[in-house]
């Protein structure tokens, strides 16, 4: 099949990066608002901090990539994209432009509240930080979801024209956001452990657990692994609904979905990279460790290699999901003329 891809790698990368950023901010804000006290209070704050510091970067990078895809940019009208800011209409792209701009602004302020010297829960930036988090949760969800609405708004693209697509993108964004925080946490593992040691040495007022420092570090990863398992489960459910409704219909949508079903040109990419590597495998690995604590009440402990590999394959799967969806939508169209 020879088809021109009007939306290529920059758009695929944007959908992925914006998802990671929006997910990271939503998760970070949720952890911050939920995890103020308790046993993991300090660790929660660190996780919220990782998410906050990650969030603006991929979204800004992805938005920048979008400009590279514009026809006006290719023709030398480099700043023509500013026309987007002269209009507000119900085009999902117009709504998305304003949402993204607001999101980038908010995420930068939110990130700044974590970059101040001697950052700690309850410091003088706390009010602003929490205010940003309250706005950040719905805004992150909106940014994660609008791209699915954008693709879904066209009857001429039957593969995309599904209300479930936005939900798939939302769950994928949240789970890749969690993965980004997990990855950051693993990469800065030493820093984290050193901080726990310092806390233990100073004998702070926080309720001390009977675990050693290493154990405390592992415990704090439980919330990420558990929520990621849940999010991947929800994503698989949404993908199942997407597939089964497309499969059980006739006509345009049925023909379109056949490119990712067995025998289709994108079946390999979809079933191996997205479903198996990006979703099933990480979910099963995480489940293995989560269940030990959830059902058997053992201490949560994950080997370093696994702790690194799981978020990496989740992120690869998230990218491949955007790749398969964007390409499949463009190589299929309405049946008949």
């Amino acid at each position: 099949m020879i088809m021109e891809l009007n939306w290529g790698l920059p758009v695929i990368a944007y959908l992925f990066l914006a998802g990671v950023g929006a997910g990271a901010l939503t998760v970070s804000a949720s952890i911050l608002l939920r995890g103020g006290g308790g046993n993991f209070g300090g660790s929660h704050f660190d996780m919220a901090r990782y998410g906050a510091l990650i969030a603006p970067l991929p979204v800004m990078l992805g938005s920048g990539l979008l400009i590279l895809e514009l026809g006006s940019f290719h023709a030398g009208h480099w700043f023509r994209f500013l026309n987007l800011y002269t209009v507000i209409n119900l085009s999902p792209m117009s709504v998305g432009t304003w949402l993204l701009s607001a999101f980038i602004g908010l995420s930068l302020v939110y990130a700044y509240t974590f970059m101040v010297p001697d950052v700690a829960p309850g410091d003088r930036w706390d009010v602003l930080r929490r205010a940003c988090a309250w706005v950040g949760v719905p805004m992150g969800i909106s940014v994660a979801m609008y791209t699915g609405v954008l693709l879904g708004a066209m009857p001429s693209r039957p593969f995309w024209n599904s209300p479930v697509l936005a939900m798939i993108f939302l769950f994928s964004a949240l789970s890749t956001g969690v993965a980004a925080i997990m990855l950051a946490r693993t990469l800065f593992r030493k820093f984290q452990i050193r901080k726990l040691e310092a806390t233990a040495a100073s004998g702070s007022s926080r309720r001390t657990s009977d675990l050693d420092v290493e154990g405390q570090y592992h415990q704090s990863g439980y919330i990420l692994a558990a929520s990621d398992t849940l999010l991947i489960g929800l994503e698989l459910t949404a993908i199942f609904l997407f597939l089964i409704f497309a499969y059980l219909t006739v006509g345009d949508v049925r023909y379109a979905v056949s490119v990712i079903l067995f025998g289709g040109s994108l079946a390999g990419a979809f079933w191996f990279w997205v479903i198996f590597l990006g979703l099933m495998l990480p979910a099963l690995i995480e489940l293995y460790y989560v269940v030990q604590r959830l059902l058997l009440h053992q201490n949560f402990s994950v080997p370093l290699g696994v702790e690194f590999a799981v978020p990496v394959i989740v992120l690869i799967g998230g990218f491949m999901l955007r790749y398969v969806v964007v390409v499949a939508g463009q190589i299929t169209g309405p049946v008949g003329i």
């Binding site: 026809g71 023509r80 954008l150 001429s156």
Partner: peptide, 9 residues
């Protein structure tokens, strides 16, 4: 027009 190709799609 900014050439976003949304209409093309």
């Amino acid at each position: 027009c900014i050439g976003c190709k949304y209409c093309v799609q």
